[in-house]
């Protein structure tokens, strides 16, 4: 029972970060119908920036977070203008944008690779005060607790913003129909850039926390979590922010159970099987926001 509780809490910690990664990813996918794989590279760069600031300038993690979010957000906006925007009017926009974004992924990962010299770097010790907390039978570190609170808090904020603010309404209008949104006087370009910024910022934040928690910074960091983020997004439901949270938590808990009760090598298998299973049986995910699934 205690073991189960501990595994569940570990899963929630993991899942909340997956959810952060997935909600940004899903935001872009749902509002622009773009499979923006370069999102993974933006994640990687978030970690690289956090590592650079903490290592070379000696900043504490908390101080780096706003800078990381800003940098990752701007990087994603640049990705929108350089990789995506000119393709949206094409007949095969989905495919073209995916391939272009993939090209961007390759470039960004490769530059990170050269910068890190192919090495796997570590975050400096003491960048965030880590002390264990005992909550009944469950142990959790201050870092992990912070990760959960920050992730869930930000996702809740995003969900609220999407539902209740003018910006959120504009994003949903663009998602429903780009052309109509433009006719209604919405600056589609600005909204799209905003979505890419928010999405990148969330990825950057998630990356900085992952890099600290797992103590690893490498060029392939983002790509390694790409399919997991996809799984969280699909399980939760495309474009639903609350869904990304639920999907992320479910995937996180499922993967810690797989590690705890089966074997760590089954972790990815369980995650990917969940992804494939949901796509086949219930492609709209747990929280579906769009009933119209394109039919052949």
């Amino acid at each position: 029972m205690d073991f189960w509780l501990q595994q569940t809490v570990n899963g929630i910690v993991l899942g909340s970060v997956y959810a952060l990664y997935a909600s940004g990813f899903g935001l872009v996918m749902a509002s622009l119908r773009i499979f923006h794989v370069a999102h993974a590279a933006v994640f990687t760069w978030g970690a690289v920036v956090a590592w650079d600031l903490t290592t070379r300038l000696g900043w504490p993690l908390v101080a780096t977070l706003p800078v990381v979010m800003l940098a990752a957000g701007l990087l994603n906006v640049a990705a929108y203008f350089l990789l995506i925007r000119h393709l949206l009017k094409r007949q095969d926009a989905e495919l073209a944008a995916f391939i272009s974004s993939m090209g961007g992924l390759i470039i960004l990962v490769e530059v990170a690779h050269h910068l890190l010299d192919g090495a796997v770097e570590r975050m400096p010790a003491g960048v965030f005060p880590v002390s264990p907390l005992e909550l009944g039978p469950v142990r959790i570190t201050t870092l992990h607790a912070t990760m959960v609170v920050v992730s869930i808090g930000l996702i809740a904020l995003l969900a609220w913003g999407m539902a209740h603010t003018q910006a959120g309404r504009e994003v949903r209008t663009v998602a429903a129909d780009r052309e109509t949104a433009s006719l209604l006087g919405i600056n589609v370009d600005r909204v799209s850039a905003g979505v890419f910024f928010a999405s990148g910022a969330l990825a950057g934040l998630a990356a900085a926390m992952v890099a600290t928690a797992f103590n690893v910074v490498s060029a392939d960091l983002g790509s390694g979590y790409l399919v997991i983020a996809l799984a969280a997004m699909v399980v939760g439901g495309f474009g639903s922010v609350a869904g990304a949270l639920a999907g992320g938590l479910l995937i996180g808990v499922a993967s810690t159970y797989a590690t705890g009760y089966l074997d760590s090598s089954y972790r990815d298998l369980v995650v990917f099987a969940l992804l494939l299973g949901f796509l086949v049986v219930r492609p709209t995910g747990l929280f579906h926001t769009r009933s119209e699934l394109a039919r052949v």
Partner: peptide, 17 residues
């Protein structure tokens, strides 16, 4: 039943599985 981005994701998930 899948198309577009969903299909792409499903096929990538298949390769990963």
């Amino acid at each position: 039943r899948l198309n577009g981005i969903y299909l792409a994701i499903a096929s990538i998930a298949f390769s990963e599985v």
